[in-house]
Each structure stands twice: as structure tokens, then as C-alpha cells.
Design a binder for these strands. Structure first.
Lengths: 223, 223, 223, 223
DNA sequence: TATGAATGAGTCTTCATTCAT
DNA sequence: TATGAATGAAGACTCATTCAT
């Protein structure tokens, strides 16, 4: 809403910093909280830390979020919505083989989500789902259902074009989902421990996954 | 029920009740801890609760596990690390195609681990790895490294027999690991919320995964 | 009494009650701690008790002193270390014989320290030194070293004026220190037990000590 | 009672170790406790540690001493009695000047007590007197009263022989007591901290104390 | 709104003491 | 007597939450 004002024509004086900050508070808190929750988990993050990171006092945080749990829910809520930009559109207009489309989907998924703090949200949701059942439901509705729907369409496209085999689509989507979710979880757990030697390179990982996904491990019979 | 066996004839000396309990304590505590950690997470589980579940007092727990963190480590060790020696043996003697071997590996993995509370520990380790760096390290050493080694051998066997294509084995192992870890994570997060509609059936999931893993999504060129 | 001054006219702004309390907190806590530590010893004093005595809650204490041990250190600092700067000044301006100076030193020492709760802290430090090595070190640096230095100067003054014999000053300082420390210890141990009959009267004790210190027990040769 | 048996004429077989140990238990416990209480203080010493040092189990300790406090009292009790060997006799037969006698008393006191674990008892009693009032009373009766009596006699001897000035004996005894008690306390507190630089050499300390005690700090008028 | 001092319920951990064997 | 497993009361410390300013 203040967007209108902010983009007003060459307005000579920028709005009072105070005012701008005031408006921005909840967002800054959510950003700080996202960052810390992702880094340390829900339980291990102290609300005071979040407030400090956002540059406000502990009391102010509770002005906007009556509870640590509420803060958490808001963080996830806020960031889950962002998880689905205009992907659907993008895919409707995709031109090319379904194999390429699948690869494109996974690479895009990684670039726009896995490679951003949003992947931390996924990890957070997976880690805390049982402690926040309504988040799980919300996530299911807002992310999983549409996400799976999208992937289903891609697979269905391939099947109907004869490029893919006949597939049990309900199951096959997990064929795409599993490696991506795994990669995000890995990145934010084992992969985040410096001492761990077995580091996964996301690009190569995705490349291999798509490759095997399309052609399987088995050697071609005639070749 | 096993009481019958325990009171069987010519039992040389029944262990004193006290003694029996003494021996059993750590195990009972570990069981209780496994149960509660999996159900509520590490931070949300109170040590006293664990003790009570095991039928002992808080103090007794600290007799065996000097620290809550030590208890957690012991649970991980008991439920994950201990599984590996047997697995290694099992696979050495496998007879059959590498495809069957891969399927056998994944089904066994699920039956002996995914389908038991141990899978909850896997989820916990992924969730808490960053808070317990030394657990992450020893998990890497004791579980991931040998586990990946085992899978690598299976894949290598297939490659050298000509059954599988030439593969970048370092990457290909994740092709097997990812769906399994994903399945365990799912089961203990989104999948554990009753409200969630999109429930995954492990058997069908694994079946599909193996199928696609072996033959890919792509339809056979000539057939 | 200074209240009069505080409410004097044109007082710009009376400090908010909250603010006043805030400023006073550490001091009140220190007073309470002094009192309780002296009365019951370090180990036997519960931090909550200290807080309650200061009229605040347990949590508030930890706001100012992160640790029980830190509280103890602060008490020592506040009650012992802080006395020294003033003393040093006081003695620089003393006029009179060195014998009088010595008497003055001991009487002052007693009045300003021995006769106050601070003497209890001295006793506590002696009692607990081995359990708090870093307190022992800083007590040595901040109290013993400057204190002995001061006494040394007094004795040196007497020696160089010819009033005192040539003395091994390093040893002679203990001649002054020993009775004073003894008196404080006594007051807070044996002397504090009502049942004990053999009560020491500090004034007479010091009087006798100074007397013997200056003239010895031996009868004058010529008289 | 078993003393009789134990001193039996050249008994060929030494008593069962077990039996001997059994008899010795309380003594070993008291020794261990003395050692640890002196080293770490009452509160910081764990009863289990004492038991371990004595080579028995925690339970056994409580067989002999129903309470940690009882153990403490027994330790002090036991060792306080030892503080007065046959000193009185020794002094009755002393031949020499009263100055020499005083020096002899202090040196002996140090050698037979200050320099032995008994000095730890003195420190313990001074430190814990207020928490154990009956120990204070007992100590007063058994140690302080006779001790002061002895010193009083020495001083009285000097006074009546004209070697010492007329003295308020009740006060003058502290002239001898204070440095000795101080020295013992020092040894077991500040002096026991390695980091402390200002270490007191007992022999020189006593030498100086006696010297000043007899002749004072003041230079002889005529010389 | 914003602050940050204050709170106190909650948690881990210790350790003297008990008691079945 | 001796053991050592078990107990549970007690205490230090944390941190989400409140509230006067």
C-alpha cells in the first residue's frame, strides 16, 4: 500500500527513516527469524537474538508476534507463499521434449529455491512439522499439492506424448520430489558441518539424478 | 510370554531381580529415549520423562548417561550404527542380478530401519545435525561412509557385470540414498500429521523408485 | 540526610522509579550477597536467597551477575578492593611518629574493614581461596600486594628515621598483618559462636598488639 | 579389644587381611576425609570421593558415619584430640629463659602441628565453625582453653621472673596465638595457590615474629 | 510504538542418603 | 558387614513473556 507513495515521482525527501523502519519492522524480524531458525532450529534460537538481528528490542518483537511459536508460524507462512512465484505460467509455455522439461524443472527448482534461503524453510518444515501440525497442513496445501500438481503435469505430458512410459503418476512424482527434498535437507544438515568430508555438489547431483531418472541405471539392451 | 522360557527347567541361576534390572537399565532408557526423541524431538524431550518412561528416576538416568547429549549419542549409536555390521555380511553373500540386489538392498533398508523407530533417529540427526556437530561427524563416519560404501559396491558390481551402464559411482549412490532418506524424513514429518491427505505408501514408493531407478522414465526406443 | 540535597529545588528531573531501581539493583544485590555469604558461607548460600534479600527475583540476579562465582568476585571487589585507593591517600598525609602511624594504620584497618561486614569477606576468601583460584590471584594482586606495600612504607619510614630497628621488611610486614587477619578470622568463626566463652575484644586486642609490637614483651634492661 | 590379639606374642599368622581391614575401616575413612576436607573444604568434598580414597564403597561409609556432617565432626574430633600430646609435660620441665621458652613453644607448635595435616584441621575449624557450632565449642574446650593456658603459664613465668614486663596476660596470649594461627590459615589458603607469588617461609616467619615479640620494633633507647 | 528491566516457570544436573541383596 | 544401584530433593541457570515507562 505504501508502495504507491514510495514510487511517487521523484519525491524530493525520502520518508523519515523512522517511519520507514516502523513499517519495515515485521519484515525485518521475519528475515532475522528466518535466518536464525534455519541456522539453529526453532528450539535453539532465542527470541532475543532474533530481535537483536533485526535491530530492535526483545519487547518490540512481542509487539508483533505474541509468541515465539507465532513468530515461527509467520516465518514459515511468509516464506512458503514465496515458494510459488509464477512457475505455473512458465511451464505452460515451455517448448521442448518432456525430458528437457523435467531437467529444466529440477534445475529451476534448485536455482530458485534450493539455492536460496527458501530451502531452509523446507528443512524447517520437515524438521518441525510434528510440533506444528497446522504448519504441516498449510504446507501441504500451499506447497506440496500445487507442486506435485505441476510435476504431475510434466510427467503426464511426457506419457501422453509417448516420450515416457505409462506411469503411476501418483507415485512417479516422488521420483522427482525425493531427490530435490533430500538435497535441500542435506545442504542444511550434514552438508552444513564443516567437518563432514562427503560434500554434495548440487549441480552434479541434479545432473546425475535427471540422467538416471530418464534412462535408468540399466544398460540399453541392444547398444 | 517369554516368561515361560525364562522359567524353563535347569536354569542354572536366575539372575537376581536387582541384577537383572541393572543390566537392563541402559537398554530400557535407550528405548524410552528413542521413543520420546522421535516423538517430540530432542529439545522438547525432558530427561525426567525419559527416566519415567523407563521406570526409573531422573537420577538413575544420569548414572548411565552423564548428559542429555550423551543419551542422544547413545541412542543414535544403538539404533543406527549397530545395524551396519550385519548388513555388510548380508550383502556379501547375495546371489542374483544387480537389479535384484539393489531392490533387495532398498527393501531391507526399509524393513530393518525405515520401518522401525530407527528411522525417527535418522530424521532427528538430519534435523539436529547442526546443533550437535560431533554427532554429525560420527554419523558421517559410522553410518554414511560405510552405508555409501555398501551401495557403491552394489552399483560397481552391476557396472562391472555389464548389467548397469558406466556410472559416476560417487554421484550414483545418491540415486539410491536420496529416496530412502526422503522417505524416512517424510514419514516422520509431513507424513506423521494425520491431517495430511497425501500419504505415502512405503512399499509402493520403493517399488516405483526401484523401477524407475533401473529402467528410467523414458519409454524403450524400439519397443 | 542527603535526601535533603536530593530533593533540593530546581531538581531538573527526578529519576523514574524504575530507573532508580535499575541503578540500585547491583548494589542491593551486592549488599545482600555480602550479608549472606558472610553469614552462611559461599556454598551454603543459595542465589535465590540473595535475590530475595535484595527484593528481586532469581532471574534479575543473573541479569547482573552471570554466575554465582561472578557474584562472589563482585562482592570481594566491592568490599575489599575498593577500600585501597582511599587508604593510600590517607597515609600519604599522615603526620606523627611511626609508632603512632602504625597504631593509626591498625586502628583504621579495623574500623574501616574489620569492624564492617567486609571482614567477613576476608574470612571467606581465606576459607575458599583454594576453591576459587582466580579469586585468590586477584586478591593477591589487588589487596595483598598493595596492602603489604602500604605497611612496608610505614615500617620503612620508621627504620629510616631511626625510630625502628633495622628490619627485614619483607618479614616484618607480617608482624602487622598476622594479628589483623587473625582477628578478623576469629571474629567470624570461633568468636561468632555464642557458646564460646573466650571472646576477644577488638580494641583491647589491637591495643595490646601494637604495644607489644612496638616495645616487645621483654622488660627494659635499665629500668 | 583386638589390640590384645594383635600384639599377641610372635603370632605366626598375621590376622586375615579382611579382618584387619574391617577393624581399620573407620580410621581409613577418617584419614581420607581429613585429607579431602582439608584440601577442598567441607562443601566441595563428595562423600563418594572419601569412600573411594579409603578403598570402600559409598554405602560402607554411611555404615560408620550416618551423615556427612557426622563424618566431618568425627574427623575434627579425632584430630583435635591429637593436637595435644604431652606438651604440658614437656614445658613443665623446660629449663632456660622465658624468651627461649617462648621461641621453643612456637617452633614446636609449628613443627608438631603447623607442619602436619593437623594444621588443616585448624583451618577447617576456623572456616566451618559457624556451620558447626558444637565443633566450635568442642574446639574451644579441648584446644583453645588448654592451649591458651599453656601459653599463659609461659608468659606468667617470664613476668614473675622479671624477664617480661607486667602484662595483661589474657590479651598477651593472643600475641603468640595470632601469628601461629595466621600462618596455618595462610598455608592452607592463599599460600596454597600456586599462582600466588607472595609465599611465606614458615621458619623465617616464626623467627621474625619471636624476635619482634620479644624486643619490639622500636630501637633501644640508649644504644 | 518501543524499550529493556524484571519475572518465574522450567530444565538439566549433582549428590547425600537409602536399601535390597 | 559390604555393596553399589537407585532415589529425589535441591540448586544453578535459561529464556519466553510481561509491563511500567
Amino acid at each position: 500500500m505504501s508502495a504507491l507513495q514510495e514510487t511517487a515521482l521523484q519525491r524530493p525527501e525520502p520518508p523519515h527513516k523512522r517511519e520507514r523502519r516502523k513499517q519495515a519492522r515485521p519484515g525485518e524480524l521475519l528475515d532475522a527469524a528466518l535466518c536464525l531458525f534455519v541456522e539453529k532450529g526453532f528450539a535453539a534460537t532465542r527470541v532475543e537474538e532474533v530481535a537483536l538481528h533485526a535491530g530492535v528490542s526483545k519487547g518490540t518483537l512481542f509487539l508483533y508476534f505474541p509468541t515465539k511459536e507465532d513468530l515461527f508460524k509467520a516465518v514459515v507462512h511468509e516464506n512458503i507463499v514465496k515458494l510459488f512465484p509464477a512457475w505455473n505460467e512458465e511451464f505452460k509455455s515451455f517448448v521442448g521434449s518432456s525430458g528437457d522439461m523435467l531437467r529444466f524443472a529440477m534445475v529451476t527448482w534448485w536455482n530458485q529455491m534450493g539455492n536460496t534461503p527458501a530451502s531452509g524453510i523446507v528443512k524447517l518444515v520437515m524438521s518441525e512439522a510434528k510440533n506444528f501440525p497446522d504448519i504441516a497442513v498449510f504446507y501441504q496445501e500451499e506447497v506440496i499439492r500445487p507442486g506435485h500438481g505441476l510435476l504431475r503435469q510434466i510427467l503426464a505430458r511426457g506419457v501422453s506424448s509417448g516420450e515416457f512410459r505409462a506411469l503411476d503418476l501418483d507415485q512417479a512424482v516422488y521420483t522427482v520430489v525425493a531427490p530435490m527434498i533430500f538435497l535441500m535437507m542435506w545442504k542444511h544438515s550434514i552438508g552444513a558441518c564443516a567437518a563432514t568430508s562427503d560434500i554434495v555438489d548440487p549441480e552434479r547431483f541434479i545432473h546425475t539424478q535427471v540422467d538416471v531418472l530418464l534412462h535408468g541405471l540399466t544398460a540399453s539392451p541392444t547398444l
